[in-house]
Each structure stands twice: as C-alpha cells, then as structure tokens.
C-alpha cells in the first residue's frame, strides 16, 4: 500500500510543477486590474484545503497492508 502512497506523492509533485508553470504563464498574460490575482488566491486556498484533508486521512490510515489485501489476499 506504500507504493500507492508514493504514487500519490509523485502525482502531487508533478501537479505542483504543472501548476507553477501554468500560473507563471498566466501571470505574464494578464492585464492590470483584472480578477486574475484573486482567482489564483482562491485556487491556492482550495488546493491547500484538499491536500490538507487528504494528509489528515493519510496520517490516520493504516498503510502497512500489502497490495494483495486489495484483492482479498493476506
């Protein structure tokens, strides 16, 4: 089960890298006085909340089981 956790963290790394590039690109293309900074702030807050809740679940879960437990094994 630890492999699934590692895969999730790998996804998070790729997701953050992609978001950083996306925000950089969009920051260059925005206009003065538009709603883009507000939108990015809200987006960062929502992403933060989702990751925080996920981390809480991760910390309270048991990850010592093996992958075969998913398919009815030991």
């Amino acid at each position: 089960m630890i492999f699934i956790l590692l895969a999730y963290f790998l996804f998070l790394i790729v997701f953050f890298a992609y978001n950083a590039y996306m925000i950089f690109r969009l920051w260059q293309a925005r206009m003065k006085g538009d709603a883009t900074p507000k939108a990015f702030r809200m987006y960062a807050i929502v992403i933060g909340i989702i990751i925080l809740i996920t981390l809480l679940f991760i910390l309270t879960s048991d990850w010592s089981q093996s992958l075969s437990a998913l398919f009815g094994g030991g």
Binding site: M1, I4, L5, Y8, F11, F15, Y43, V46, I47, I50, I51, I53, T54, F57, I58, S61, D62, W63, Q65, A69, L70
Partner: peptide
C-alpha cells in the same frame, strides 16, 4: 484496504476538477 485507495483517488479527482 480499498479505503486508502478511495481516499487518494478522491483527492486526485478533486485536485483535477479544481
């Protein structure tokens, strides 16, 4: 054991939707 998978899948789902 599916509980852990569901939690992570839901998290990925929400991140992608947002």
């Amino acid at each position: 054991a599916w509980r852990n998978v569901i939690i992570l899948s839901t998290s990925i789902y929400y991140l992608l939707i947002v």
